[in-house]
Amino acid sequence: MAEEKDPQGAPFSHPKPYGSGVTRRQFLAVAAAGAAAAAAAALSPLRDFGGFPPLREMLQKHFTELTPGQKKEVLERIASQLQEKYGAAPQLTALPPMDGVQYAYALNIGRCVGCRKCVYACMKENNQSRDPQIQYISVLQMEKGNIDVEKSSIDYEGQVPKEGHYYMPVQCHHCETSPCTKVCPVKATWREPDGIVVVDYNWCIGCRYCEAACPYHARRFNFKEPYLPEKDFNPKIDYLSNRPRPKGTMEKCTFCLQRTRAGKYPACLEVCPTGSRKFGNMLDPDSEISSIIRDKRVYIFKEELGTVPRFYYYTDV
């Protein structure tokens, strides 16, 4: 071979493995031991890993594909896990949508005073993480005379309402043509027959494409293990709604389906001191929501995006 004939031409040629004091076998043994130690060091943070969930949970199918038997089993498993974690026995349901119901929400933008009671009532009802704090509702303090959100402020403080301002709470708009469900690569978020956009927290892979697609900044991701103190745990929970979420998954407003599918109002509406929040079945012509959509001056936030929200802003005038 050429390299043996012309050593001059090979200034960088490989040193002969048998030429030095160390044999190839010894060298490889040291190298292998070093590699094993380095690999162990690299993997050392895994010592803090709490372990994977049980195999049956990891292999659980998509919620809409579970048979009634499997669904029961899943609910029992989650209930017992939660009881262990929070001490209280949860009332875990998987309420189905009601026939002939299409939910819609209307917010009286002329009345809202920006007190943020809805924000915290929502958090209590829906078992959001307290640290880091996750909130579904953003209350924008808008400058009077324009509807440019870029001129709004979300972290206003002190007495409200402030002179020269009005308030515009934003939460999930439960769009009819929802960009978030369209982009989800695994159908972990979808629109239920009653119009509520939900997430299967056991199916979401945490890619956050839905969060990038949402024009209303309505989605929240569990960047850390959510922290919910035992005393704050609300045991009345639903699978698709306010059960505590795991780390690394997406969550959002579900119109409090654990309440609304049982005929109650959402928590944000009940707590509102000004009556700015209205909710109901838009298929029922006699409902308050139908009359607002029919008779009031209603506008849709970012209507030009074609999202067709089930969330309307209106004024009394």
Binding site: A38, A39, A41, A42, L43, S44, P45, L46, D48, F49, G50, P132, G206, F221, N222, F223, K224, E225, K247, G248
Partner: peptide, 16 residues
């Protein structure tokens, strides 16, 4: 390996 180490930290503690 340093990257794997960092990923293990992320895997355990989340994307936070």
């Amino acid at each position: 390996l340093a990257g794997i180490n960092a990923y293990c930290v992320q895997f355990v503690h989340g994307l936070g």
